[in-house]
């Protein structure tokens, strides 16, 4: 995999679509490509977060601890961006991400991420959009869960 291919790959991700190519190249150059076997975890809920990950290839489960054990709340795949909450809000990891298949990621350090966000407002908007979407999904799920609970009562 060459640097140029990595740049192409990043360009296809909505989050980075508007960023100029030379910055994407820097991102690709300083990001670390990491491959995980199925079953390996990128990070665990509660860990300190120092980086975010772009999924280049493969699928991964997003798991959240619950009293009855971990439950899968979502599945992420190619071109998804994960792990950004911990570095945005300086909180411990809010979920565990475990590879479902062989998983290739690009690891972006906190410093690089912040630098990009500062330089490219477009990226901030993309991130907001993504977060808002997730919030919307979560809210919907919560409503469903509450109404189910209501019905069960």
């Amino acid at each position: 995999m060459t640097l140029q291919e990595d740049v192409e790959l990043l360009r296809n991700i909505p989050l980075f679509a508007k960023i100029e190519p030379s910055k994407l190249k820097l991102l690709a150059f300083t990001a670390q490509r990491l491959t995980y076997n199925a079953g390996d975890s990128l990070f665990h809920q509660g860990d300190e977060g120092d980086s975010a990950y772009i999924i280049v290839d493969g699928d991964a489960d997003v798991l959240v601890d619950s009293p009855t054990g971990p439950i899968t709340v979502a599945t992420v795949g190619k071109n998804d961006f994960v792990g950004e909450i911990a570095i945005l809000c300086d909180v411990p990891r809010t979920a565990t991400i475990t590879a479902k298949t062989t998983l290739t990621t690009m690891r972006i350090s906190k410093e690089l991420f912040f630098q990009l966000v500062c330089q490219f407002p477009q990226m901030s908007i993309e991130i907001m959009r993504e977060l808002a979407r997730r919030l919307e999904v979560t809210t919907r799920q919560l409503q469903e869960a509450l109404s189910k609970a209501e019905a069960a009562r």
Binding site: L3, S22, K25, L26, F29, T30, E111, L112
Partner: peptide, 19 residues
């Protein structure tokens, strides 16, 4: 490549040392 990637960074940026 280095000139392309790093020219815009401030000289004290940690990337110089790291990358």
């Amino acid at each position: 490549t280095m000139v392309e990637l790093f020219s815009d960074l401030p000289p004290d940026h940690e990337f110089f040392e790291q990358f």
